[in-house]
Every structure is written in structure tokens, then in C-alpha cells.
């Protein structure tokens, strides 16, 4: 596994020590899951859902909103109206 590429995709900064450690651990886990390759799954549908349910839908009716002040109170940075982040392009 290309640990740096995966960590970048996952947006997790890793130290060199972590890269080394996770690389080794994940390689061991991947070696273990390799056993699945031996299973004959020719023509077997993947299980996306275990339930035999049709999609439940809701009517287009407005429901309860959250209180902005309560929501922003939990935010790391805000200006009373919006969440603040470093400038994005």
C-alpha cells in the first residue's frame, strides 16, 4: 500500500514513525484479507444492503430547522453567520 497516497486521500497527516508503523500493520492485514481471493465469487451479487426493502421516501414538506446560534456555538470558528476556514480557492 502506498501509505502516503492513501493518507493524503484520507486527509490524515502522518509522522514518519506512523507511516512506518501503519505500513507494516496494514500490509499484514492486507496479506490476511488476501484469503478472500481464493473464494469463488463468479456471478455472486455483492451485498449492498442486507434488507429486502424498497427505498422509503418522504413527502416534500418542510421540517424542523436547527437554531443557527446553537449550531455555531459548537463551531471551532465562526462570525455569527458562517463557519470560518482558511481561504479556499
Amino acid at each position: 500500500m502506498d501509505i502516503e497516497k492513501v493518507a493524503k486521500l484520507a486527509r490524515i497527516e502522518l509522522t514518519d514513525a506512523e507511516k512506518e508503523r501503519f505500513s507494516a500493520e496494514l500490509d499484514a492485514i492486507l496479506a490476511y484479507v488476501e484469503e478472500l481471493a481464493a473464494v469463488d465469487t463468479e456471478g455472486v451479487e455483492p451485498t449492498t444492503h442486507v434488507l429486502p426493502l424498497a427505498l422509503a421516501m418522504r413527502a416534500d414538506e418542510v421540517g424542523e430547522k436547527l437554531d443557527r446560534a446553537e449550531v455555531l456555538a459548537a463551531a471551532p470558528a465562526h462570525d455569527g453567520h458562517a463557519f470560518i476556514v482558511p481561504k479556499v480557492l
Binding site: 462570525d79 453567520h81 458562517a82 463557519f83 470560518i84 476556514v85 482558511p86 481561504k87 479556499v88
Partner: peptide
């Protein structure tokens, strides 16, 4: 975008 930061709505 506003100055050195961005506001998320």
C-alpha cells in the same frame, strides 16, 4: 472569500 479567510454558508 473574504480577506485571508473563507466563510462557509
Amino acid at each position: 472569500h473574504e480577506g485571508g479567510r473563507s466563510l462557509v454558508d
